[in-house]
Design a protein around this nucleic acid. Structure first.
Length: 895
RNA sequence: GGGCGAUUAGCUCAGCUGGUUAGAGCGCGCGCCUCACAUGCGCGAGGUCGGGGGUUCGAGCCCCUCAUCGCCCA
């Protein structure tokens, strides 16, 4: 797979081939790359829906995970990134139902078994396509361990958990108000009913007092529910209504007498202070109804049409049509007191966006408080750490106010609830069982299994251990539980993240992970969340095709600081992804240059081997790039560890592009061309700093770094950068004087370039430069890199002598070195004087403000001495620069 | 209604513990096909750090307040 290196990097020719090579060699399995004694490191992939297609949100989430897992893998951990797919109850069922609808069928036409069979077919056909898509972006998950939440193994865990919780009294069945989706025809959990603000109305309705002495006014946002009203409630302390408590009102439209009750849950300040009570359609009303023994009248069908419990003329009407007609009846009866605009939050189904209907229904629940307590404690005692920190507040707030979890769904696709009801007359026993029951364990009579399935999240909340074989004691389970890092978008903290912590603590006795990294959301240039319905999405696969997977990953990572959203412009992919592609190309060419100029295995820079490069063989530039490389190792490693992936990307980018390519490679060229003394040292330094850079970058840009790394001479055919050791800081690289000295060289070259640009000197034309410095170290640095300066600044010579000419460009370096570039009498003296003067003025401003600062008694006495020291040093430096420039101005005869 | 976050160059964002001449990439202007790369090289312009007030020797950073945008919860 080693071909000659093209001048332009072509990702598509390389990526899939490399991926297959990695995968075939099993590099993504923890067993393959780390000894059994190594400490494990585990990330659980948020299992994508089995029918999902890769979108940018997946791209971001999985890129982050892949970066972290690759980082830890290279650091020698037994890294396991465990992938899987979620059967996604409602979502998947909806997809197949839509398919059926195209054939003019519903699931009821097929019947349960045939429908479920059809879903399985669908899943097998399209199933796990998303996992294949993840491979194209480089995801290094351990595919051999891939799970599916509805497979046999995980189903057993689900059933075990249900039974255990039931036996502990934490699973129960009961009649409560739940969120009902009239389109999906199922109950939802509180979390699955997403509150969205909508512009609605508040209708003030008059309910006549039964004795004909007047009326009570109630306010409602859902007038149609009045069909199920069974009381009016007021606050017990409300003087206005105290005398009415115990009497009755005549419910209009349905013409029913209902009592006026006193309940302290009523807010006397809301509306008139009297509220209608609909126990079957509102959770607060349900509670009031309980306390007062009120009847519950369910006035809606599952489809949210008016049921037979309402007067005939409304039966079968859609809830909104019923609302219009009821309001109209109130109006014509003179009972509509007022209508106000009212913006309020309304629950919407998180799968189909239909407005949910709070509805009384018999469902299965998990008692959450006992599970939440330890999960809260794990956060409070610091076991759990959120990144960014503040996300922990969302977590704890939710747990503090936790409500029981409705886990039954009226769907066909999912884990069937393991409960059997005895149909024998007089028995009626309910049996919860780990194994399927044929007969009632009590009486031996016929049993019927509960029709419902479990919430899809009831399987996902177990994956940190169910995917490893629980309830069996497998070696995977003991090795890889608990895991370490969970990477997620903030929108599934409650659905998934928090629940996994609860189940982990309850069933395993330990939290499933300790670090929770919550990244942002991918948005478009108008800061709207990317979504299918808005059509503002970017297809990651298209980006891979056009720019390469590395460019995609680089763009996502570098555009993302901790916890903030990533903005990408769907109308201009270049804006977002060209920088990544360009960086890959830069890297490619830097690598191409270095590799093409190696002649065999370079000498080692460190170690005991023969031929190791000695410290005295290194030039200033060598020591500088080695020191910069070492600093980059420290910066990048620290950034990866702290989840500051954009900082890691930035540090390596800067090192590769600015330090290595722009300066070191340019500097080193003469030593690489031909057989020049010191060429072997230059090759050693270039190759090894580049090798380090590749390894530092590999977690973010795995493909190109592997492609280049493998081409180093002497590399084992089987070696992969993905399991190469992570670079470690080297104390011997520490060379502050090299950083300073080469910094001056850079500054001098830049200053000369500025003068050349200022006066439009043609690139081909060499000029002479004079420098004069009081500082022997500066002079030594310039002398040792004289050839570099001459070449990079296109000089005919660099002179340390006095100069006689007047006409030319002048400058002063930061530490006071004077620079002069003679340009002959043709130079515009006035222009040069102007340049110098504006520099002089800038320095005057700096010096003045600095003198003010240092003249301030308070500053000198109160600021830390090192700060004062530093500020004094600055003043000295600026004064020196000022002096040099003023002298130059005099010399030029500026007026 | 409660809570949280954001507001820094035309755009997207860094700036971590209060002390820098406020940075990067893109875009823009000028000059270059310099034998790794024009997906490139060199140089440059561009900022009253959302407004107001305060604390401090010192504020982009801390406090108060207002405004705008966004997110979560009720």
């Amino acid at each position: 797979m080693i071909e000659p290196l093209a001048p332009q990097y072509n990702p598509s020719s390389i990526e899939s081939e490399l991926y297959h090579w990695w995968n075939e060699r099993g590099l993504f399995s923890p067993e393959s790359h780390a000894p059994g004694s190594a400490e494990p490191y585990v990330i659980m992939m948020p299992p994508p829906n089995v029918t999902a297609m890769l979108h940018m949100g997946h791209g971001l989430n999985n890129t982050v995970q892949d970066v972290l897992i690759r980082f830890e893998r290279m650091r020698g951990r037994r890294a396991l990134w465990l992938p899987g797919t979620d059967h996604a109850g409602i979502a998947t069922q909806n997809v197949v139902e839509r398919e059926l609808a195209q054939e003019g069928l519903t699931r009821f036409d097929l019947g349960r078994d045939a429908f479920v069979e059809r879903v399985w077919q669908h899943v097998h056909q399209t199933g796990a396509a998303i996992l294949e898509q993840l491979k194209t972006i480089g995801a290094s998950a351990d595919w051999a361990r891939t799970y599916f939440t509805l497979e046999e193994r995980l189903s057993r865990s689900v059933r075990e958990v249900f039974v255990r919780l039931y036996e502990e009294g934490l699973v129960y069945r009961g009649h409560y108000i739940i969120n009902w989706c009239p389109r999906c025809l199922t109950a939802l959990s509180n979390e699955e009913a997403e509150k969205e603000d909508v512009d609605g109305k508040l209708w003030h309705l008059r309910y006549p007092l039964a004795d004909g002495t007047g009326y009570l006014t109630v306010a409602t946002t859902r007038p149609e529910t009045m069909l199920g009203d069974t009381a009016v409630a007021v606050h017990p302390d409300d003087e206005r209504y105290r005398r009415l408590v115990g009497s009755k009102v005549r419910l209009p439209v349905v013409d029913r007498l209902i009592p006026i009750v006193a309940d302290s849950a009523v807010d006397p300040a809301f509306g008139s202070g009297a509220v209608k009570v609909t126990p079957a359609h509102d959770p607060a009303d349900f509670e009031i109804g309980r306390r007062h023994g009120l009847a519950s009248i369910d006035i809606m069908t599952p489809e949210a049409r008016i049921s037979l419990a309402a007067p005939e003329r409304f039966q079968g009407l859609d809830r909104y049509e019923a609302r219009r007609r009821i309001v109209a009846e109130f109006e014509s009866a003179g009972l509509l007191e007022a209508v106000e605009d009212h913006r309020h939050a309304v629950g919407h189904c998180y799968r189909c966006d239909t407005v949910v209907e709070p509805r009384l229904s018999e469902q299965w629940f998990v008692r959450m408080e006992p599970l939440a307590r330890p999960a809260l404690e794990a956060y409070r005692n610091g076991t759990l750490q959120f990144v960014p920190d503040r996300r922990g507040d969302d977590y704890s707030t939710w747990l503090e106010g936790i409500r029981d979890w409705c886990i039954s769904r009226q769907l066909w696709w999912g884990h069937r609830i393991p409960v059997w009801y005895c149909e024998a007359p007089g028995c009626g026993r309910t049996s919860v069982s780990r194994t399927d029951l044929e007969v009632c364990p009590g009486c031996g009579g016929a049993v019927r299994q509960d029709d419902d399935v479990l919430d899809t999240w009831f399987s996902s909340w177990l994956v940190p251990f169910s995917s490893l074989g629980w309830p069996d004691s497998t070696s995977d389970l003991s090795t890889f539980y608990p895991g370490h890092t969970l990477v997620s978008a903030p929108d599934i903290i409650f659905f998934w993240v928090a629940r996994m912590i609860m189940s982990g603590l309850h069933f395993m006795g330990e939290v499933p992970y300790t670090r929770i990294y919550l990244h942002g959301v991918v948005r478009d240039n108008l800061h709207r969340k990317m979504s299918k319905s808005l059509g503002n999405g970017i297809d990651p696969l298209e980006v891979v095709e056009r720019y390469g997977a590395d460019a995609l990953r680089y763009s996502l990572v570098s555009g993302m600081s901790v916890g903030t959203d990533v903005i990408l412009d769907p109308n201009n992919l270049d804006t977002s992804f060209a920088p990544g592609r360009n960086f890959a190309n830069k890297l490619w060419n830097a690598g191409r240059f270095i590799l093409l100029n190696l002649d065999g295995v370079p000498r080692p820079l460190a170690g005991q081997q023969a031929g190791v490069v000695g410290p005295d063989e290194l030039t200033l530039a060598d020591r500088w790039i080695i020191a910069r490389c070492d600093a980059t190792v420290r910066e990048a490693t620290d950034a990866y560890q702290r989840f500051r992936l954009n900082d890691a990307a930035g540090a390596v980018y800067h090192f590769i592009w600015s330090d290595l390519a722009d300066w070191y490679i340019e500097q080193v060229k003469p030593r690489l061309y031909g057989d020049v003394p010191g060429g072997d040292v230059a090759r050693a330094v270039a190759a090894q700093t580049f090798d380090v850079a590749l390894r530092l970058l590999h977690p973010i840009m795995p493909f190109i770094t592997e492609a280049l790394w493998r081409r180093f001479p002497g590399r084992d055919e089987e070696a992969s950068i993905s399991v190469a050791p992570w670079p470690t800081p080297d104390p011997r690289a520490h060379a502050p004087e090299a950083l300073t000295s080469f910094g001056l060289v850079q500054e001098l070259v830049s200053a000369i370039r500025v003068i050349r640009a200022e006066y439009g000197i043609q690139p081909g034309q060499a000029v002479l430069a004079f420098v004069s410095s009081e500082n022997p170290k500066t002079v030594a640095a310039f002398q040792s890199e004289r050839a570099t300066i001459v070449r990079l600044a296109k000089l005919s010579d660099l002179s340390f002598d006095e100069h006689r000419e007047r006409g030319g460009g002048h400058a002063v370096l930061s530490e006071g070195t004077a620079l002069f570039v003679p340009l002959g009498d043709a130079i515009d003296l006035r222009r040069e004087c102007g340049r110098l003067s504006s520099e002089v003025e800038r320095l005057i401003r700096l010096v003045e403000s600095q003198e003010r600062k240092l003249g301030n008694e308070q500053f000198v006495s109160r600021a830390p001495s090192d700060v004062v020291q530093r500020e004094r040093q600055k003043l000295t430096t600026w004064k020196e620069q000022y002096d040099v420039l003023v002298k130059k101005r005099e010399l030029l005869g500026c007026s």
